[in-house]
Amino acid sequence: MKKLSVTPSPHTHSGMKTAYIMLCVLLALLPAAIAGCLHFGIHAAELLGVTTGTAILSEMLCLLLFRRKMTVTDCSAAVTGLLLGMILPPDLPLWQGAAGSFFAVVIVKQIFGGLGQNFVNPALTARVAMMLAFTQQMTAFRAPAADAVSSATPLITGNASFWDLLLGNTAGCIGETCAAGLLLGGIFLMLVQVVSPVIPLTYLGSFALLSLLFGFDTVSQLLSGGILLAALFMANDPVTSPLTASGKFFFGIGCGCITFIIRHYGGYPEGAAYAILIMNLLTPMLDRRCAAIPFGVVSRSSAATKKQKKTA
């Protein structure tokens, strides 16, 4: 009789894989990425290719150097690379894109221990680093189909039409301009239950509410700049966002408020990247503070109120 395999229970699995989650994210990013390539031309497509390719190659290099298990097939590096490409200006030199991608994967992700161990979003951190390193190129935007004529993004000018914003016919980063494509991808991710809708809803909701209260044009505020991409894809990064629904709730609200403050009262026209990075740093605290209360455990606060009632 041949030996049977003895493993701990459970002996069946849902079949869900990390690679499936990452592929869904890549698929969801495609509409906005394609729209960006159509609007900004071949160089934008090349830039996306370079950032994605560099991310994958540097991940492989790191895994080999650090003698880690070859996990490049989980596609997480491809997601980081594509996300980074989508938040870069369309005319950025290719080598700068490659440098940013290398920074994202090697410095932010692999040096901290690889997948699941980084405490800030790699793509956003790389973008912030590039803003400092290549300030001139990183702030040179142009309107779609215009050649080398620099123009300001609608966040600065504030004069783009609703349809232009929706379809992405404005100046901006490659993947940030086409709001319709981003929404399509974001809704797809929620429908296939790859991401939870809590962070995007609270992020966009709190931001919209503040814009409304302080008398800004809410719709164009939501559709312009990087907030949609940030709320739907960056803030939702599971590695750097809180675990529980209540943690995600506060995380989203924090992102919304900080984005609002930076956009309107800070020195930068765009605040989503900084907002998310700041909230990333608060994630460990949110995980502790917003831990799930297990079934049958009397929460500390409700136990305290009961005691008060008894004494009263």
Binding site: Q117, P238, A291, I293, P294
Partner: peptide
């Protein structure tokens, strides 16, 4: 097993709301 990506699925399905 591959590294945990902190997706939180285990928390969402736990009948006793453990983490």
């Amino acid at each position: 097993p591959s590294p945990c990506i902190r997706c939180g699925r285990c928390i969402r399905v736990c009948p006793l709301n453990l983490m």
